[in-house]
Write a protein that binds this DNA or RNA. Sequence first.
DNA 1: AAAATAAACGAACGATCGTGCTACCTTCCT
DNA 2: AGGAAGGTAGCACGATCGTTCGTTTATTTT
Lengths: 200, 200
Amino acid sequence: MPGDGRVARGDATRRLVLRRAVDVASVDGLEGLSLGRLATELELSKSGVFALFGSKEELQLATIDAALRIFRSHVVTPARAVAPGLPRLRAVCEKWLAYSEQRVFPGGCFFFNVGAEFDARPGRVHDAVAAAGGSFAAFLRETAAEAVALGHVEADAEVLAFELHALGRAANADAVLGGGTRPYELARRAIRARLEAAGR
Amino acid sequence: MPGDGRVARGDATRRLVLRRAVDVASVDGLEGLSLGRLATELELSKSGVFALFGSKEELQLATIDAALRIFRSHVVTPARAVAPGLPRLRAVCEKWLAYSEQRVFPGGCFFFNVGAEFDARPGRVHDAVAAAGGSFAAFLRETAAEAVALGHVEADAEVLAFELHALGRAANADAVLGGGTRPYELARRAIRARLEAAGR
DNA sequence: AAAATAAACGAACGATCGTGCTACCTTCCT
DNA sequence: AGGAAGGTAGCACGATCGTTCGTTTATTTT
């Protein structure tokens, strides 16, 4: 197999580390990430892991980026494959709830956790987290706006998107903290009622 | 002034430490709390602070307790003073939003942050955080149920309480992470619409 | 084949973490 | 008055943190 050389091996290790890093961070936060812990769990040397990223902050930023890719592949991309308007709006809500409920990240929604962790701290990590969260909120807003523009629902698109986002995050928070699937049921009922009431 | 002795001084120092601890924890989390940092900032000895609580976990539990008292005094107690039913339901929502918006804790809602921090970790701190969050959720549910029972609103009380709680927490999350007061405006609009639509 | 490049390691650094132990000093109790 | 008790400080411990440095190993290039 050609190309199985230095660069390929480096990228493979990087992916290995990042896959573990997103799982660890979803439970213990981006500060709970430690070079030594990652190295031990993956049976690598601490300095080797460090050299891959150059600093802890770079590791945190790379972890956010990796998590964003996973999030998109589970929520945004599947939703984009659905017809615009109300169908896509329903799809993004359902995909998001499934993404949280199935624990794509063991600690629940990655961005919910790290968003709460870095919300009040300045720095590049905060900015990256805010940008990631903001980009999904924007997608949700656009999707809602499309549904309104197509006449599928009647509502203020910005408020509607805010409500749907709020319900999903609350379900994630309650379910991860308290256990059980009841919060997802409540969220689904609320979302269904909200979209039926606004629909025609 | 009699009684200004050992016990009184100990309690005073304890309160001093805890007041700082809740502020620190609301920004940097309960793990970000460190004995050394508290001691330095308050110009106490690290071992002195340590001796006050006996362990870091006890400090974390005491911090949760202190934050809970502050939360209750800003949200639950004022809401209880309002007439049961829809008025009280409106009051608890508004008091909660004001509590977040006015940054009673510098990092926004204390329990939102530490809830996200400890949601997926086992232990006594997790249990205390879950209990605190659960008790407010129960209060909200009871308040909504009262409003339903009194005929002030027509809805499933459990779903309604879940929705209102979700809107408040989403406003807190978005505002602290992204800045600005727009999230609070969106939440207030959604809450008003939700309670008017259900009211008669 | 030799030189250059990059991944990964091992050891050590200074700092900080939570936690003990000891001593001092003030207050309380008898 | 004197001993007990509690708040507080000082010091040291083992562990872990992020980081730096020099070396080894394996691939790529010349």
